[in-house]
Structures are given as structure tokens and as C-alpha cells.
Design a protein around this nucleic acid. Structure first.
Lengths: 202, 202
DNA sequence: ACAATTATGGACTGATAAGTCCCAAACTTT
DNA sequence: AAAGTTTGGGACTTATCAGTCCATAATTGT
């Protein structure tokens, strides 16, 4: 029935560009002009397609969260050692400290810090996203306990909370400017704690 | 020589008020109107005394940092157990999760997250402040090792970095909305790791 | 009395923000 | 050809922001 000029841009690519912008600069510091530039859209197209800045942001959060969860799930599935999976993730977090320029951290955590206290809609999206990420790690840790890689004396929930806390902490340290040499031993300590202080994977 | 009408407001009280405002809402989200209201100053007085919003903010950061460091030093001096000192600090961090309303986190960490990537002046002030805080914990941990409370096999620097990372992580978890019940076991795990997995102070 | 300083408050500037609206052109399907 | 839709761009509104300036009053020391 309905027809008309077809949309020329790709919604997902536009969302990806918007995400990069929001991720790098935050919500408030990103102006509509910035978005139009990186998304390569006219103002009309943006408002018609995404509603407004706030709705666009929530879309970006959701998309980021889905992407992250599926990537993590895949990595877990392709990994034969849970210990290695967790260790590699931590290493990835602190590897941002190698090149001074990027240090973007995690989009969800950044957003939580910027907006969770004053925007309940965004707070809910972030909280949900972090919950989904934590769920992947819960599965990983459960699997690790069954394979006797991790300390099975402790409740899985505690280990998940501990891991999420550690990841958040490393992210902050990277942002504050810590160097990778000082964070490497921290990663070792975290992994030792998770595995019940057996010698850990290097 | 010079005389004139004496200043009617107290600079330190004004800085305290400004700090509370910046702390609660962040730098960008705090307008000059907000500051005038909480500081109970006229616009002229604010600009004459503190220069501008940015300089005022740096003053707040410095003042906060000094206050925090001296308070921590005092607590450490008055504490007979280093383990208890560290444990109480972690408990204080997660106790914010009890009353949903406040959850302000640490002013330095908040600022690092908001501005460190794009404001080098503030980044330096924050980094310096966090360094001073870490120094107190370094002294504490050194003392703990000498008193055989902590695992002396590990370098002090690593333990300090681990502790700072853990604190930052807990702060983020609180902000994201974690409840105190799930963070309590995390605190236990952190303390066990610091003390070399002896049974820890409850 | 006089100079120096701080006080208040409002007017003002220049910039930027998000969002609305309108228009003419481009494109697709019927 | 006609209807429906998207395109880009610019004009516009409304609001807010940080910061400057000025006039006037209040209070101090000399």
C-alpha cells in the first residue's frame, strides 16, 4: 500500500555512529549538531526516525547492551577455559590504558555515572543492560565451578558480584589514568580470588 | 592601609555549599543559578571572590581532597587495627546503598568520570587528589604488613592498587543500584584478598 | 570627610541548546 | 500521472547558559 521514497541511510549504522558519539562525549556534552554530523543525517530525518535526543540515546543504550551481551556469549561459547575467558576480559578492560587517547570505558557504566541519579528511564535501561551482562558472567562462573576451575565453596552470586565490582573498579582506574603496569597485578589478584587462590592462568 | 567593608560571608562555608551542589549534580548540570542559591551569594560576589565557575570548581575539588585526606589520616591514627580501618571504609562506601536517596559516590571519582577526558586542569586536580588518598591507604597497608595483619608476601603497591580498584568498583555498583546485601560478601572477599586469605575481621 | 572595599540586583551580551516548522526536490509504488 | 514518503536545509522559537557591567548602598580605616 504505502510507498514513497525509500530511506537512504541505514538505521543500524546511524545508531552505531550515535553510540560512538554518546560513548565518547556523554549525553549532555553531545549536541544535536554533533549527532547530525556523525550520523550524517539532516535534522528532519533524525527527528522523524528517532523521535528526539533522549529516545535516540535509549536506543543506543539498548543496542550497545545487546551487542555486548551477544559478543560475550559467543566468546564464552568459543572458550574452553572459563578462567581464561574471565582473565581475557579483564585484560581487555585494562588494555585501554596502553593507548592514552581512547579510554572510553564501558558505555553502560559511563551512563550510569552521568545520568542514573536523575533520569529514571535511562537508569532502568542501564540497570537492565548491566544485569544482562552479569547474567553472562553468571553462566560463565557456574560453568567454571562445575569444571572445578573456580572456587566452588562460594555462592555463584557472590562471585558474580565480586567480578562485576572488579570490572567496574578497573574501568574507573583506567579512566583516572592508572597505567597498565600497576593494574596487571590487580588483575592477578582478582583472578586468584575468583579461583579460590589456586595459581591462575597467565 | 587598605580597608573597606568586610566580607560578610564565610569563604569556607560557601565552598562547602558549592561542593555539595557540584557533588550532587556534577559540573555541567550545575548552573550558576544553582550555585548562587546554595552559596547564598550574589553573582557579583561569586565572580569577585572565586573568579568563575571553573576556578570555583577546582577550589571545591582541592578542598574536598584535603578534607578527605585529613579525615582518613585521623581515622587511621585513631584505629588500632588496620584491617578494621580498611574494612570500615569499605562498609562506609556500601552503606550508601541503604538509603536510596543519597548515593552520591566520591566527588573525585565522579569528577574523573565526567571531566577527566576533556579538561586537563580538572583531570590533574582529581588525579592529584586520588593520589593523596591512595597515599593514606599506602601508609595503612604498610603498617598492616608490619603488624602481620596483612599478607606481607605481596608488594604494598599492588595491595594499594587493588584496594583503590575495589573501592572504585564498589562505588560504581552502589551508583548502578546494587543493594547492600549483595555487596557485603564482596567486601568480605576483598578483605580476605588483602589479608592473604586469613579469616577476616567481621 | 574621604577613600577603599564589599554588598546587592538587575540589565545586558553573545553563545548555544533542543525542538518545530516549512519548503522544494527526489524517489517509489500504484 | 498521481499519491505517498524521505530528503536536505534553513528559518524560527523558546529557553538557558556563563560572564560582564553598572549603579547604588553599606561598612570599614585613615
Amino acid at each position: 500500500m504505502t510507498s514513497g521514497r525509500p530511506r537512504e541511510f541505514d538505521i543500524d549504522r546511524a545508531l552505531e555512529a550515535a553510540t560512538q558519539q554518546f560513548w565518547a562525549a556523554g549525553y549532555e556534552a553531545t549536541s544535536l549538531q554533533d549527532l547530525l554530523k556523525t550520523m550524517r543525517l539532516s535534522k528532519s530525518s533524525l527527528y522523524q526516525t528517532f523521535g528526539n535526543k533522549h529516545e535516540l540515546f535509549v536506543c543506543c543504550i539498548d543496542r550497545y547492551q545487546q551487542t555486548m551481551v551477544s559478543a560475550l556469549s559467543e566468546q564464552l561459547a568459543n572458550s574452553n577455559s572459563v578462567e581464561r575467558f574471565l582473565h581475557d576480559f579483564l585484560e581487555g578492560v585494562i588494555s585501554e590504558a596502553k593507548n592514552c587517547s581512547t579510554r572510553k570505558g564501558c558505555f553502560l557504566v559511563n551512563t550510569a555515572n552521568e545520568l542514573s541519579q536523575r533520569d529514571p528511564v535511562i537508569a532502568k535501561a542501564v540497570s537492565s543492560g548491566i544485569g544482562n551482562v552479569a547474567e553472562v558472567f553468571r553462566q560463565a562462573i557456574e560453568q567454571g565451578k562445575q569444571q572445578k576451575e573456580l572456587d566452588s565453596a562460594l555462592p555463584t552470586e557472590n562471585l558474580v558480584d565480586y567480578f562485576m565490582t572488579s570490572v567496574s573498579g578497573l574501568r574507573t582506574m583506567v579512566k583516572v589514568g592508572a597505567d597498565i603496569a600497576s593494574l596487571q597485578p590487580v588483575v592477578q589478584l582478582i583472578m586468584q580470588t575468583l579461583s579460590g587462590n589456586k595459581p591462575t592462568y597467565q
